[in-house]
Amino acid sequence: MIDRKSPVPMYYQIEQYIEQLIESRNLKSGDQIPSEREFTDQFHVSRMTVRQAVMNLVHSGVLVRIKGKGTFVSNQNKIEKSLLGLNGFSEDMISRGMKPGSFMMSFARIRAAAKVADRLALDEHDDVFEIKRTRFADDEPMAIETSYIPAKMVPDLTEDQVSPSLYQYIERQCGLPFDHAVQSIEASVVTAEEAKILAIPKGSPILLIERCSYLKNGRPIELTKSLFRADRYKFMVKLPRG
């Protein structure tokens, strides 16, 4: 409950109260939380104080606001992905017993931008296939993925061949086995357009992941930028001592 004598701000105490309700399972994933007015009457604070507490939890991924419906507890069962091992999105979902899916936002052969050409060790005027997809798990949007593939290495790539698995096509049909990848992970927030695609509130936290994959001969074959929902995805790594 609220301690008005505490130096801890009241909005933060309300945040903690809501989180305790979730931890004690008095509020479960998908449950609607009380309205701002109910919290205002319960704690005898201003609606602005309650709104700040709720929005902080929305921005941290604990809650999700659905326009016209209210605020709900977000899905607390996150998909775990190991940072050890190079797998495509479809392979990851299938290994977890989930149904992978994709929506092709765009597929085009374009001139490689300077950064893309540099990362893929291409000449200035080389072309790449730019593939933008929304990735789904059990019909729920999970990520926005943009991939670049050197056109001279996979010249016959078509939109149909990208699905269901780009990795399988490159390895099995093109005979180009993947060897390893270099990956970076950053925290970011979604734009209004990205939020709409991922069905999350504008300004929600996301995991920005950039990965460059290499063949066994050391040549880079793919550069991918992915925006993963932070409320549904987490990455795990095993750290051996020494």
Rank of each mutant, 00 (worst) to 15 (best):
P9I: 04
P9N: 01
Y12F: 13
Q16D: 06
I18K: 05
Q20V: 02
I22P: 08
I22T: 03
I22A: 03
K28R: 11
G30L: 04
I33M: 06
P34M: 03
E36S: 11
R51V: 04
L57S: 02
G61C: 10
V62W: 06
V73L: 03
N75D: 15
N77V: 00
E80G: 01
L83M: 14
L83G: 08
L83F: 01
G85S: 06
E91C: 10
R96Y: 07
G101Y: 10
M105K: 15
M105C: 07
S106G: 12
F107R: 00
K115H: 12
L122T: 04
D123W: 03
D123L: 13
D126Y: 09
F129A: 05
E130S: 13
R133C: 08
T134G: 12
M142W: 04
S147T: 08
S147H: 07
P150Q: 03
M153I: 13
V154T: 10
V154M: 04
P155S: 02
D156L: 07
L157F: 08
V162S: 04
I170K: 05
E171S: 02
Q173P: 11
C174G: 03
G175M: 01
L176F: 03
P177C: 02
S184M: 08
E186D: 13
V189Y: 14
V190N: 15
V190C: 14
S204P: 09
L208F: 11
S213N: 06
Y214N: 09
R219W: 05
F228M: 13
R229G: 09
D231M: 04
Y233E: 14
K234P: 13
K238N: 09
K238F: 03
